[in-house]
């Protein structure tokens, strides 16, 4: 694949990923394999770029004090072990399986993203003893309504093991798997929507690093390919985030979600008929 195409594809993937809120990997891998790259190499290269996009956006959210560091650092224990296991599975699994699983996870994330997010979120009154022991409560200042929101995270005994699964998917497929992580934060641990999203962002960085080191040791990361992709995805994501502030048009978001739907179906079909 020529350098300029690789770079442009990555800018586009970063851009669409940031606009749709699904992250760069979910676009990057289908497109790279479409241009003939082996899916395992695409996964390995994509997970390196996930470190960059997640760390870049997490740095702003952490300084704004929206991210809950304790929730993140408790759950990381599960996601990194999951990512190591997932990446090890990818090394030995068949390409057909990876294509189909990728399509299924993409469609599942798409549904999770489309799901009506609870607008009138209420903090749980009851916090179980384990979550209290873990100090999973916090508060943040919401700039849009100019109010400090206090909340209590709950059911950490369930959230932790589920996060192992989310980490495993991330390592297996070379994506951030942010949609899965946000789902666990929202539905299981009852965190406010903004805290869920930003905390998942923080976790994605270390999870991707665990996956990256497995692929690096397997000799699957080609710096000549990884470097233009990292640069492109970071530039695309930065542009996408800035556009997102200005463009709140629902139509635009729907177009991007439409692209993701097509990619998901396409991956399953390609897995089904053989690569």
């Amino acid at each position: 694949m020529p350098f300029h195409i690789l770079f442009l594809v990555s800018v586009l993937a970063g851009f669409v990923g940031a606009m749709s809120g699904m992250g760069g990997g979910v676009i990057l891998i289908p497109v790279l394999t479409f241009f003939g790259m082996d899916i395992k190499n695409a996964i390995a290269v994509s997970i390196v770029s996930v470190i960059a996009t997640s760390s870049g956006s997490a740095s702003a959210y952490v300084r704004d004090r929206i991210t809950n560091l304790k929730v993140g650092m408790f759950l990381e224990m599960f996601t990194i072990v999951g990512a190591l296991a997932g990446a090890a599975v990818t090394l030995v699994s068949g390409r057909k399986f990876l294509f189909i699983l990728f399509g299924v996870v993409l469609l599942f994330s798409w549904v999770a993203l489309f799901r009506q997010r609870n607008e009138d979120w209420h903090s749980t009154v009851h916090q179980d003893r384990f979550s209290r022991w873990l100090e999973l409560q916090g508060s943040y200042y919401d700039q849009s309504i100019r109010e400090t929101i206090a909340y209590r995270g709950t059911r950490a005994y369930l959230g932790g093991p589920l996060m192992f699964g989310a980490g495993m998917i991330a390592g297996l497929l070379g994506i951030g798997a942010g949609a899965l992580k946000v789902l666990i934060h929202d539905l299981v641990m009852r965190l406010p929507p903004k805290v869920s999203t930003t905390t998942s962002n923080l976790i994605i960085g270390v999870t991707a690093l665990a996956g990256t080191s497995v692929y690096l040791s397997a000799g699957m990361i080609d710096p000549g390919l990884a470097a233009p992709i990292i640069l492109g995805v970071v530039i695309g994501a930065t542009l996408g985030t800035h556009f997102l502030v200005r463009l709140t048009n629902r139509m635009v978001r729907r177009i991007f979600l439409g692209i993701l739907l097509i990619l998901g179906v396409e991956m399953i079909i390609r897995g089904g008929v053989g690569v």
Binding site: V48, I51, S55, G205, V206, A208, T212, S213, A226
Partner: peptide
């Protein structure tokens, strides 16, 4: 790439 991996 090494610096990126060291960041997290």
């Amino acid at each position: 790439i090494a610096v990126l991996m060291l960041t997290p």
